[in-house]
Design a protein around this nucleic acid. Structure first.
Lengths: 126, 126
DNA sequence: CTTATTGCAAAACGTTTGCAGGTTT
DNA sequence: AAACCTGCAAACGTTTTGCAATAAG
């Protein structure tokens, strides 16, 4: 992977945003700082960075992919109220049981929880 | 939800196929039996049937949605070798831990395992 | 008679890709 | 100079939608 100004910027924004931004959101913010940046380049760099495990891809069923600068293994919760995505940690026992459920040849897994986040619970009478 | 011949057919095919077909696959097979059926109608019916909980939607990150006639709560494994999707059961303890990880307000969850299915393991030296 | 549902085609959506030119090593 | 990366625009695969016509209750 060769250096490029655009790649550096994309990586920096994923880290700085820290809230699981989509490609579109990263593009929006990065192109303020680098006019002429193209959305295709953002997608390409997100893919390269994810393949190189410098960032992680977060898939939320029914929505655009998001990207996460946290490399540690973890899962996510999608708030059905505000659409935010927050980190969720499974303990080792749960993880082990997930691996075992797949009969021993699991390469990866994707777990997304759907619920109402703390912030939204705080507001209305949810 | 009103009765319609097309809806009945879509539901029947999801049940009969029994292997997590995609909308396209359902369309392919159903339209043999009902020429003139449109892909849009298949999508619309899959949506109303899923909303009414007569079938379940199975999201596999990076692939088209699939549909499942099994209503019982369960997860899925996507075979990275042949692309097949098979059912996977989590035991109650794992489920409980998943619910707890989300801090108590989980409405739903989506878990997809990625690995090599039994059939593919049987073949080559996998 | 009213309203849901259909087929069709067009469009929306998120994402990838071919290309010609520019950058990095 | 070779290999990689960019911007642009077109295309992709999946899914939704507007419409006028048809079917269900």
């Amino acid at each position: 992977m060769r250096y490029s100004r655009q790649r550096e910027l994309v990586l920096k924004k994923v880290a700085a945003l820290d809230d699981h931004p989509t490609a579109e959101e990263i593009y929006e913010i990065a192109s303020r700082e680098s006019p002429g940046l193209s959305l295709g380049t953002v997608y390409r760099n997100l893919n390269v960075l994810a393949d190189a495990k410098r960032i992680r891809r977060v898939s939320v069923p029914g929505h655009a992919d998001r990207f996460d600068h946290t490399l540690r293994e973890h899962s996510h919760m999608y708030c059905t109220c505000c659409g935010s995505v927050t980190d969720v940690e499974l303990d080792d026992a749960a993880l082990l049981q997930i691996i075992e459920a797949g009969a021993g040849k699991i390469e990866d897994y994707s777990l997304t929880l759907f619920g109402v986040c703390g912030k939204c619970r705080g507001k209305s009478s949810n």
